[in-house]
């Protein structure tokens, strides 16, 4: 459990960490859109350089980014196989008996791989430099204009932050219950089907009970402090866009414009 790097916040002191979460989320969205324009290798090269610059600026190690990509490797390999079986255009590169791998299959796969890698780099750059709570604050603010058409932006943000807050607790709780039941002779790895079902049941029931208990405690604690959804609230942390935030947005917008130009006019 301790080895998951995808989506984990890394507390460092860097200019990227200090940026406004709203600016970072918007910039990420702009660049994600930019990636999907068919701007060719030159376009991807530019995006890669821009994103690498951000990563260096955020003081994250490339090793960390690499680790978050690893889980995707299997998927990419799978994609390659599918492409090889389906795409039969271009020049044959390798022939094994009747079966041939065509250049377009390789090209298509490479495109998708590069896009995926860039996307992971960007999203990792966002989640690793922004505290989950700041992220939800940013999402709340960005969603608030949609309040007019009935999107409950505050409730959504509260939901996300509570869910995020409970993840480590529930992981701990699960491990605790596993140990407690193992002490009572539960064998999670071996045993007949019925025994296995009982074993899983002996984990799930206590886990649900304690999750509901925690939820109720939290709800009571929030209500006791006067929380009511939908009421106007002030914030402890007030987000403020500074010059660097606008610069980031400008950079991302330029990148997007550049990709559109490369894709359609160059």
């Amino acid at each position: 459990m301790g080895n998951i790097t995808l989506g984990r916040y890394i507390p460092l002191d860097s200019p990227v960490h200090k940026l406004d979460p709203r600016a970072k989320i918007m910039a990420m969205l702009l660049v994600l859109v930019a990636i999907f324009f068919p701007a060719g290798w030159l376009g991807y090269g530019i995006i890669f350089l821009a994103v690498s610059f951000m990563i260096i600026l955020s003081k994250l190690s490339f090793n960390f980014i690499w680790k978050s990509m690893k889980p995707m490797m299997f998927m990419m390999f799978f994609l390659f196989i599918i492409n090889c079986l389906v795409l039969k255009t271009g020049t044959p590169l390798l022939t094994i008996g009747k079966f041939a791998i065509y250049s377009d299959a390789v090209k298509q796969t490479l495109y998708i791989v590069v896009r995926l890698l860039l996307m992971i780099m960007i999203t990792t750059c966002l989640t690793a430099t922004t505290k989950p709570l700041d992220l939800t604050l940013g999402i709340e603010d960005l969603l608030s204009p949609f309040g007019k058409i009935g999107v409950p932006s505050h409730e959504i943000a509260m939901l996300i932050s509570i869910a995020l807050r409970f993840i480590p607790d529930l992981i701990d709780e699960t491990q605790r219950i596993i140990k407690a039941q193992e002490s009572r002779g539960v064998d999670l790895k071996e045993g007949k089907i019925m025994e296995r079902i009982m074993a899983v049941l002996s984990l799930i029931v206590p886990l649900f009970v304690s999750a509901f208990q925690r939820a109720e405690d939290l709800a009571n604690a929030m209500e006791a402090r006067g929380y009511a959804p939908g009421e106007p609230r002030t914030r402890y942390k007030v987000l403020k866009m500074r010059r660097s935030d606008w610069l980031l947005l400008l950079g991302a917008a330029l990148l997007l414009a550049g990709m559109i130009f490369l894709a359609f006019f160059a």
């Binding site: 709780e173 605790r176 219950i177 140990k179 407690a180 039941q181 002490s183 009572r184 002779g185 049941l201 002996s202 799930i204 029931v205 206590p206 009970v209 304690s210």
Partner: peptide, 15 residues
């Protein structure tokens, strides 16, 4: 089976 371990707050293991 020979060494019985009772965890802290064991009431959470009831199911």
């Amino acid at each position: 089976g020979q060494v019985g371990l009772v965890f802290q707050f064991p009431e959470y293991q009831l199911f």
